[in-house]
Design a binder for these strands. Structure first.
Lengths: 235, 235
DNA sequence: CGTAGCTTTGACTCACCTCAACTTGAGTGG
DNA sequence: CCACTCAAGTTGAGGTGAGTCAAAGCTACG
């Protein structure tokens, strides 16, 4: 049982777990339950496939049901930034809710399944849907602000810790282990998200391992002392 | 006529100008026009006054009508980050739309007037209001992602340019000069927003002035060569 | 078995930070 | 009117954390 987050298998139901603390995750327990009975179009993607690209016409909203996505924005002169990683229960496409075109790329990092939400319809037929949507948008803003704060005020090592703790919390909220996590992205992707170079991510992990705070085995990470990690992050 | 952005005087009407390009500003031309006829509670604040603080009960939403705000988030261990500057036409409080408490501090940088929007009421009475709100939320996410990209990929000097160009564009959208801008915040506040130290902001401005790209006189900035500035930013 | 992509590590560099001195301007009170 | 203070801004000298460049190891997969 090394690979705890096998993506295409049904993950534990997110509604089974409690609320997320502020900004930690973009998941909204219950959204999946809310639409589970509806006849939604489902779509599966293989790793590296694009769910959509910035500039493409936007028709629906997507709810991640299995697998793992990243969203990217790109500047006119080619600079790229990963703005989020999306897990089961997270929405894709909300950032362009008011626009005819998508505003970012959404790329599967793994085999994935998404549910297509026809939001114009749902908005009218499901009274709670609009409310959920608003909550999802506001929560995304808070999440982004939290990361802005982290990237603007933490050292490289602290950012890596923040990333791991956040990721672990989100996985735990989905019913996975809070200490054993399988990163589904490369060091370069972690670095891009944290505004660090891949070598810096590697070095931070090596140092934390040397201090016994965690164990690194490729993309498999075991948090050995979450309390100490939290300590280092706040210091 | 040095102080072009005198805050408490009525600014030119935002609806008079066109759409913002992607992510540049959080303003939503028309929102003000939409609610202008309604009997809204208005509130004026002096510089350094808090409109609200993180954790305080949230009742309404605020539309900036005059003046200039910053919003700040603070971590449990005291790290602070300015997440946005808000001008006329911008909304304050949308980040906590789904919560009973505010999620950030909103602080007047100047004499300000805000209109209090009772969003629960408006949502039902004004059909377009919900739509505007959604648009405002999504646009805020795109704005945040744009800054994440900028802070993660640009040098100090480039960030300062990006800030000035963005600010100039927003002021222009409000009917002010696109080349002569009065910063209403300190170097430290600019630096905090850009994840730079205040000395670095000062040095960047000095260098750009030495190259003839702009003229600095305290908080009064004149953009002498916007094209060249854009060039430097993309390089 | 070989190739390609990812990861790790080391040596060196540099952009930005830190610390400190000095300037400027607004407000205050004798 | 001047002396004083205090907050904001500028500039310089020196330090350092993260980036850059390069080489080697590791895995997966055809």
């Amino acid at each position: 049982m090394l690979d705890l987050q096998t993506s295409i298998e049904e993950s534990p139901h997110p509604a089974a777990v409690g609320e997320h603390p502020q900004g930690g995750s973009a998941g909204y327990p219950g959204l999946e339950a809310l639409v589970a009975g509806l006849p939604l179009r489902r779509r599966t993607l293989k790793a590296r496939e694009y769910l959509f690209r910035a500039g493409q016409p936007r028709s629906a909203l997507y709810l991640v049901h299995a697998g793992f996505f990243k969203t990217c924005v790109t500047s006119v002169d080619g600079r790229e930034k990963i703005t989020s990683f999306r897990l089961r229960g997270d929405l894709l496409g909300i950032d362009a809710l008011d626009m005819p075109m998508h505003a970012c790329d959404a790329i599967a990092l793994d085999t994935c399944e998404v549910w297509e939400l026809p939001c114009e319809q749902l908005r009218h037929s499901l009274p709670q849907f609009q409310e959920r949507l608003t909550a999802a948008l506001a929560a995304e803003i808070r999440r982004d602000w939290g990361w802005m704060l982290a990237l603007g005020t933490l050292s490289a090592e602290q950012r890596v810790i923040a990333f791991l703790l956040d990721f672990a919390a989100r996985l735990q909220a989905l019913g996975f282990s809070a200490t054993d996590l399988m990163l589904r992205m490369t060091r370069a992707e972690v670095g891009n998200f944290l505004s660090l170079k891949l070598e810096t991510v590697t070095r931070a992990l090596s140092r934390l391992q040397a201090r016994g705070l965690l164990a690194v085995d490729g993309r498999q990470i075991r948090l050995r002392d979450a309390a100490a990690l939290r300590e280092v992050m706040a210091a």
